[in-house]
């Protein structure tokens, strides 16, 4: 209830940014792209403006292509973080889904493989939701635990199918690496997906409840919300999205491993946080998380261009994620 007009300017700027989180994010994104262009002239804007036009559609397409699985996993984090939760099993779930799909495709064919891969994600989500909503285990512990269990199960499963070989279904390859008019085909999946998430958060009762539970669970309870129902639905949805992202990632990488998508976990959390989602719940935006994912991809490109050794790059990436997040939190006063 502070008087809006008498606060010091920094507080007012912070509040403005908190109310309009997209503005600083977009500014930051374009700033990074400008730096990138300065580092390696021509990468974003080709020297001769040929058929690509002013901006290299190839580069933009590439940026978007690799941001898509990250942005999908970031959706899991945004949704769970709205309720002051988090889903640390998404990396493993995406990996499991990709692995199961690739191996089963060679045994039973593509359709059952895809369905079973998605079902695996839903299963993990169901366990997460039960643990968080009914048993009331902290989401951090719960999803870390189920992630570990899923990793173990995956190793056992690998021995069972060791002779089966793996096949990456054609339509996933089309989605993962194909391009239409310079833009990645992944957008065919991602655009409707993003619209769905934005709609879910903004225009549905379920979305309202996510915000409500994260803002004040007692107030939600007081209004008649049975929180466990929401938590179960939420983590099931999160598991499903992670599995879906795993399938897309499989098509993009075109090979499987037991830790395929695991490295995407921290960036998925970071993308959500950079995008203005509070890990303490009640505040978040998926549009912001998408920009957050793009920012992280641009940063990654910059580090690659600096030709650092893999280890140093990974470490620096971690440092940058922490620094950007801390800075953003400091400016907006959001957490």
């Amino acid at each position: 209830m502070s008087d809006l007009s008498t606060d010091p300017p920094l507080v007012r700027i912070g509040r403005f940014l908190r109310d309009n989180p997209m503005i600083p994010l977009l500014v930051f994104l374009f700033l990074l792209i400008a730096v990138l262009e300065a580092m390696r002239p021509g990468i974003v804007m080709p020297v001769r403006a040929g058929r690509d036009g002013l901006i290299s559609t190839f580069w933009v397409g590439n940026l978007i292509k690799f941001a898509i699985p990250l942005a999908m996993l970031a959706a899991c984090q945004v949704l769970t973080m709205l309720t002051a939760g988090i889903d640390l099993s998404v990396g493993v779930v995406a990996t499991v889904s990709a692995f199961v799909c690739a191996t089963l495709s060679s045994i039973w064919g593509v359709a059952p493989a895809v369905l079973i891969a998605l079902a695996a994600g839903v299963m993990v989500g169901l366990v997460n939701g039960f643990g968080v909503g009914v048993v009331r285990v902290h989401p951090l512990i719960m999803t870390l635990g189920t992630g570990l269990i899923a990793t173990g199960c995956l190793q056992v499963y690998q021995r069972l199918v060791i002779n089966a070989g793996s096949v990456v279904p054609d339509f996933l390859v089309w989605l993962g690496v194909g391009r239409t008019l310079g833009m990645p085909n992944g957008l065919v999946l991602f655009v409707p997906f993003a619209i769905f998430i934005l709609w879910l958060m903004r225009y549905t009762g379920f979305g309202r409840l996510l915000f409500a539970l994260g803002s004040n669970e007692r107030a939600a309870k007081l209004s008649g919300v049975r929180a466990w129902q929401v938590y179960i639905a939420l983590y099931v949805l999160s598991g499903f999205i992670a599995a879906l992202a795993g399938l897309l990632y499989l098509g993009m990488i075109r090979q499987t491993s037991l830790s395929l998508a695991n490295p995407l976990l921290l960036p998925s959390v970071a993308a959500a946080v950079i995008g203005g989602t509070s890990i303490f719940g009640g505040r978040g935006s998926y549009a912001g998380a998408i920009i957050g994912a793009l920012i992280l991809r641009v940063l990654d490109t910059m580090l690659t261009l600096m030709q650092m050794p893999e280890g140093a790059r990974t470490a620096l990436f971690g440092v940058i994620i922490l620094a950007v997040t801390a800075l953003y939190v400091r400016i907006t006063g959001a957490r």
Binding site: S215, V225, G282
Partner: peptide, 19 residues
Amino acid sequence: EALLSQRPVRENVALPFAA
């Protein structure tokens, strides 16, 4: 105890509708 302090008036009033 009863309010979603970071949410607008409308969402606070309408909370039971979505329950």
